[in-house]
Simulated assay, not measured.
Amino acid sequence: MSGPAFVVAVAGPPGSGKTSLAEALSRQLGGAPILSYDAYERITAWPPDRVADWLRRGAPLAEVPLPGLATDLAALKRGESVPDRARGGSLRLPRGEPRVALFDTLLGRAHAGTGCHIDYLIWLDVPFDVALARKLRSFTAEALRDPRAGPPLLASLDAYLGRYEDLLRPTYAIQRQRVRPGADLVLPAAPLADLLAAALPALARVLPAAAAEISR
């Protein structure tokens, strides 16, 4: 089969579980490829004063540096293979139906360059304190896996918390304000199995070709 892909985006604040849900959906949808915003973004490399200035100017999303992301998403939607910048190798649509591509993103339809390619948007509506706790646990989990990584991880954690109140949390508030209203499906904080159980029937309704695959 050939033809364009149906792009399902999963968005939410960092720590909301969007990557986990995208991976679970991929397994249910015949290995649908996942394009990851995090593999392209460069804003986290900005110094704090540049982020602060960006926030003061209203946080224009068109200025978020995402080199190559819109081009790769458009190509994947057309059915072309693109580099997997997150894991290496290539991303390509599976043979047959459903022709679905997943997009793990922070910006949803609010970012003009990539949002125009989204056919269905899932927003994970996780409270900031829960998202923060999950983010912090990612630091501690890594340190527990490899005690030698403790000191640099502690420095990264300190830097993250140092920027959280004045820079990061305001950014996440803007994200929720601008991205959530464009969602086709809003899911509250819940275990992954419950999120999947809510997302799959919704996708089956808008993508009939996926219904047989989802029901297996």
Rank of each mutant, 00 (worst) to 15 (best):
Y120I: 07
A52V: 09
L153P: 03
M1L: 15
R169C: 07
R145A: 13
P47R: 12
R178C: 07
G15H: 02
L187T: 02
D119P: 08
L157N: 08
A112D: 14
R57H: 13
P33Q: 05
I174N: 12
G79P: 06
I43K: 09
G113F: 03
G89L: 05
T44R: 15
A5P: 04
A59F: 01
F128K: 05
D72K: 07
E80M: 13
G17F: 04
T114Q: 02
Y172G: 03
S36E: 15
D104P: 12
A190E: 00
R99N: 05
L29Q: 08
P147R: 06
P127W: 04
L203I: 00
A197C: 01
G162P: 11
A183F: 10
R85G: 09
R85E: 07
A9N: 08
T19C: 07
W123S: 05
A210K: 03
G17A: 03
I43D: 03
G162W: 11
A173Q: 15
T19D: 02
T71I: 08
V51M: 15
A59L: 04
V51L: 15
A173R: 15
R85C: 04
T114I: 06
I214P: 03
L187P: 04
G15C: 02
S90R: 14
G113H: 07
A211H: 02
G12Q: 06
G58A: 04
A112K: 09
R78N: 12
L69H: 04
R163W: 11
Y40G: 08
V64G: 00
P14I: 11
L29S: 06
R95C: 13
K77P: 11
A159M: 10
L25K: 05
D72F: 13
P94A: 07
L106P: 11
S81G: 12
W123P: 00
Y172P: 01
G3S: 08
D125I: 00
D38V: 05
P98G: 03
P147H: 06
G150D: 07
L29K: 06
A45T: 14
L144F: 01
R95K: 15
L161K: 12
V206M: 05
Y172L: 14
A9G: 09
L161P: 09
P60D: 07
